[in-house]
């Protein structure tokens, strides 16, 4: 919503917005309570989410936390937590665009520099499964698209 308001503010300079241009605001009002609920739930279970994702990934592919002989689990946890917190705020604000602009696009280049795409691909795939098990369906439907966006942005080798 934030970036939509900003875009609207720019586009209606000197004129009024049409009803079509205002529908995003109505949609946001309708979804607000669910978003707050989801945001607070994510806050509550964030450690568990990261830990469960970690354990599942370890089971699926233990080599993913090994980077040329170094264990990068700690680094992975920090990076993953960062993305998850951005996902949470993006859920609350219904703002994937700001999430992309202020984190994902930059992070994509960093992950590419460190050849971490495979790890990211798995992380945000597995995390979607963990989310579906930990949140209600409506809540998960808010979160998973952003995790999928993360997976596609960070996990794909260009």
């Amino acid at each position: 919503m934030l970036s939509q308001i900003e875009r609207l503010s720019r586009e209606v300079d000197g004129r009024y917005a049409s009803d079509a241009e205002l529908t995003f605001a109505i949609d946001y009002v309708r979804s607000f309570n669910l978003r707050v609920q989801t945001y607070q739930k994510l806050q509550e279970i964030e450690s568990m989410l990261v830990q469960q994702t970690y354990s599942k990934m370890r089971t699926l592919d233990p080599t993913v936390f090994d980077s040329a002989g170094t264990d990068i689990s700690a680094k992975w946890k920090r990076d993953t937590l960062r993305v998850l917190r951005y996902v949470a705020i993006a859920v609350l604000m219904d703002d994937a665009d700001t999430f992309r602009e202020r984190l994902l696009l930059w992070f994509q280049t960093i992950m590419r520099a460190f050849s971490a795409q495979r790890s990211c691909n798995l992380t945000y795939q597995v995390m979607q499964d963990v989310i579906k098990q930990s949140l209600t369906a409506p809540q998960a439907n808010l979160v998973c698209p952003l995790l999928e966006l993360s997976r596609r942005t960070l996990g794909t080798i260009a």
């Binding site: 707050v36 917190r85 705020i89 604000m93 703002d95 700001t98």
Partner: peptide, 15 residues
């Protein structure tokens, strides 16, 4: 709201 995203969650009064 996005400024602090990675450091903390929003406080109840911010929400």
């Amino acid at each position: 709201v996005f400024d602090e995203a990675e450091n903390r969650y929003l406080k109840p009064d911010e929400i």
